[in-house]
């Protein structure tokens, strides 16, 4: 038992090093003075000059702002559609078109992005020919595309939360006189809210991060942040991208640290409550 548990533990540590080493190196070199990214210029480092350069880069700032707007709208719309789809799949039982909906929500998750991107662009082109909308490609088509692939993820999250949901809670509410809409608003929604929230965060991240699909459905003047980064790094490394990466890692890490601390505190409180309840039984 000992030997292979030791092996697994070593693998875990090495794996985590593998996962974090590149991120760490980006953070370190974002403070490097040299343009040569990977050669540490000990004489003039650390420096914040790449952060200054980044924050005065109009193009990056504009792209970031566009990406944020698209991600917020896409995530919000995806949450609504994904919650509906998740509810339908988890609760409606066998309805007509169930297989179709289940297939269509699961497929975008594994579909190679180039194919999704290509098919969406061809749709938009065909639509424009047919009904004259959308007029060209740009922020609108990007958002539509993002909603589509994000909602698939939200559906999965909501659906699996509902699968572990005690349906008698809803029946109890109905039994106590609540009509179906009230049951949803007072009981179901508050209880699946954590799943919806994590679905929203997931959707936001996916939209914020997406490059391949976006490239297909973007037009001139609608470059998102990943598109700008891609065009920069495709032709070599640039130190201001390191600075950008550091800022993003920092934001995410802070957010996750806060949520972890909060969750720990909650867990502790729960454990205490459980002891209290157990004591009451005696």
């Amino acid at each position: 038992m000992k030997a292979h548990s030791l092996f697994a533990r070593t693998a875990l540590v090495l794996g985590l090093v593998f996962l974090y080493l590149p991120i760490l190196s980006m953070i370190v070199f974002s403070f490097n003075n040299s343009r040569l990214v990977t050669v540490w210029d000990a004489a003039h480092s650390p420096t914040l000059k790449w952060y200054v350069a980044l924050l005065s880069n109009e193009q990056i700032l504009r792209a970031a702002w566009l990406s944020i707007r698209i991600a917020v709208i896409s995530a919000s719309a995806a949450v609504v559609l994904g919650t509906l789809a998740g509810m339908a799949l988890a609760r409606l039982g066998a309805f007509r078109g169930r297989m179709l909906l289940a297939g269509m929500t699961a497929a975008p998750i594994v579909m190679p992005e180039v194919i999704t991107g290509l098919s969406l662009l061809l749709l938009f082109v065909a639509l424009e020919q047919l009904i004259g909308w959308p007029k060209g490609v740009g922020a609108v088509t990007i958002t539509l595309a993002h909603i589509t692939f994000c909602m698939a993820y939200v559906t999965v999250v909501v659906q699996s939360r509902l699968a572990g949901f005690d349906e008698s809670l809803e029946e109890a509410a109905m039994d106590l006189g609540a009509r179906p809409l009230r049951v949803f608003l007072r009981i179901t929604l508050p209880l699946i809210l954590p799943a919806i929230a994590s679905g929203w965060l997931l959707a936001f991240t996916l939209s914020w991060d997406d490059l391949v699909i976006t490239q297909f459905v973007a037009g001139p003047g609608s470059s998102t942040l990943p598109m700008v980064i891609f065009s920069k790094v495709r032709f070599g490394v640039t130190p201001d991208v390191n600075a950008l990466a550091t800022i993003m890692v920092l934001l995410v890490a802070t957010g996750i640290a806060i949520s972890t601390v909060w969750m720990r505190a909650r867990q502790k409180r729960r454990a205490r409550d459980l002891q209290l309840a157990a004591a009451a039984n005696l």
Binding site: L21, M26, T38, D209, I229, V233, A245, V252
Partner: peptide, 24 residues
Amino acid sequence: LIVLPFWTSFLLRVYAWIGLLKNN
């Protein structure tokens, strides 16, 4: 710890490897 890198940009994480793997 496993999921955290996923929340940071995929593109930037791939980019990080350029800096690690280049000739210099």
